[in-house]
Design a binder for these strands. Structure first.
Lengths: 157, 157
DNA sequence: AACAGATAGTTGAACTTTCAATCAAGTCGT
DNA sequence: ACGACTTGATTGAAAGTTCAACTATCTGTT
């Protein structure tokens, strides 16, 4: 921040929106996480990984791609996959084209867990978010957050 | 979930919006936190507490009210305030009307830190979010997240 | 007054994420 | 083919969060 330039503070309305945003994501993510843990024993982070794997050819994705896809650090992915592997939902295989590479693969048990957890998750997303908003407003949320992702997206950790 | 009823999955568009939302809040919160830590040595959670205190009469708020205001658990507030107290930004005083009560008070040093950190924070919120969206879209975000907060708001931990 | 139950806050352990350091394998320029 | 550099992934420790258990105080009922 250059000291010469004045900071443009948020006006009252913007501040309200920003605080609603902060508070909203806090309670929303917390509730979705709680529901998944209570009913299926997985966190929302783990759930998102299972989803990505299930949609991918061979139900497998390399660690770095998983990290990029979720905007998580490599380290975080390593730890999370370690837990998922311990629980038998995912397994690791060596990448044959790159000696350094490791690929995470969804196991049958992982797919089973995902299949049932998906109901809980989607119902939550609807009940706590999608169904509360008008389609236009929800689309606006999508537009805005897409821009945020694009603006901050390709960082390295 | 009753097994009789069918889960209404998200359509492709809704799914895009939801994923943008998830990815967006991840990179946004991460960046705002990083900026505050790098330039002022406080996390975004700590920053939010300082803000609430600074706006309150006597620059002080009771622990439970702080928890409610941030949608954090009591335990989390206790730990965070302990850290802020260790760093001299906040101090604890006994509540005189309720023997169980503890009130967190912003110190002068805490106010100083907040005063400079606020520039960093607001500039970030603008650059990474507010200025990327049209006023209408940002207002829509505010509307939606207000509803989320109201729907999930008053939970106990 | 005394008890039951609710509320405020803390504590310590378990769990998750971050951070910096490390190791192995790939790429590039000479 | 050598060294310098980059990239992919892991590791262990530190920082932060959650969870369940606990103490202390308050409130309402009898």
């Amino acid at each position: 921040m250059k000291s010469a330039e004045q900071t443009r503070w948020l006006d009252e309305r913007q501040q309200e929106h920003w605080r609603a945003f902060l508070g909203g994501i806090t309670v929303l993510m917390d509730q979705l996480d709680r529901d998944l843990r209570a009913e299926h024993g997985i966190s929302i982070t783990e759930y998102e990984i299972l989803v990505r794997l299930s949609e991918s050819p061979d139900r497998s994705i390399r660690m770095a791609d998983l990290a990029a896809s979720l905007s998580h650090s490599r380290s975080r992915i390593t730890h999370t996959i370690t837990r998922l592997e311990r629980d038998g939902l995912v397994s690791r295989i060596q990448c044959d084209t790159d000696g350094r590479g490791v690929t995470a693969v969804l196991t049958d048990k992982g797919f089973e867990t995902l299949s049932t957890a998906a109901h809980t998750h989607v119902n939550g997303v609807r009940k706590y978010l999608v169904d509360l908003a008008s389609p236009e407003d929800f689309a606006a949320v999508g537009r805005v957050m897409t821009k945020v992702q694009n603006a901050l997206g390709g960082r390295t950790f």
